[in-house]
Design a protein around this nucleic acid. Structure first.
Length: 193
DNA sequence: AGGAAGATCTACT
DNA sequence: GTAGATCTTCCTA
């Protein structure tokens, strides 16, 4: 039986959650088919004090980032959907962006749907993985800690601390002074070295 | 009602 | 390496 990750896992600092999400299994059920992949790259985002955070702009995204943890936060940019998980201590803002996964189940389905047949180009980027897993705005604000969710996070593999690499975030024009991107060193499915 | 910004991806040179 | 595609969201008037 697959083991779901419980809600309290997300009730911590987003950087901690981002690091510990590495190796977890992202599972998507679509048309009764199970698609999945190990999370191999994440980024942590904070509240309005974070120049790269969507919380800065207010509105629904900011409210969601301060709302219940363990829920999806999905927003569009440049015609793609980006998947985040709300994660923060009580009364704070925070979310973790899922940037890349290593495909495990349903690889053929993902290839057909995305029209890409090179496995290394299937899910190595935040916009790419949402397309491969058919994730869109209809999955916004849904719990990933329930075993019946169509998009959820399950226990995956243990990642050794020494295999975790850290860098500054990618694609942001103004970053914080501390590196908030986490990825599995040497993994072939990470979006960038 | 309009405008601007943006946590990207792809194709082409 | 870089330009351009093309969409959602929020802010201002």
């Amino acid at each position: 039986m697959p083991e779901i990750i419980l809600q309290h896992f997300y009730n911590r600092d987003p950087a901690i959650v981002a690091r510990e999400l590495l190796g977890k299994l992202l599972v998507r059920i679509i048309d009764g088919i199970r698609l999945s992949g190990y999370i191999v790259e994440t980024e942590a985002y904070y509240g309005p004090e974070d120049p790269a955070s969507r919380a800065r702009r207010g509105g629904d995204l900011a409210r969601t980032m301060r709302g219940a943890v363990g829920y999806t936060l999905i927003y569009g940019i440049h015609r793609q959907w980006l998947l985040n998980i709300v994660a923060h201590p009580p009364e704070c803002y925070g979310a973790v962006l899922i940037r890349a996964i290593e495909p495990l189940e349903g690889i053929e389905y993902m290839m057909r749907y995305r029209g890409r047949y090179n496995i290394h180009e299937l899910t190595n980027g935040p916009g790419r993985l949402t397309r491969a897993l058919r994730i869109d705005k209809s999955l916004h604000r849904k719990p990933v800690f329930k075993s019946e969710s169509l998009l959820r996070i399950e226990k995956g593999i243990d990642v050794d601390v020494k295999d975790i690499a850290v860098s500054y975030r990618i694609g942001v024009s103004k970053d914080l002074d501390r590196p908030l991107r986490f990825y599995i060193r040497g993994n072939k499915f990470v979006s960038k070295k």
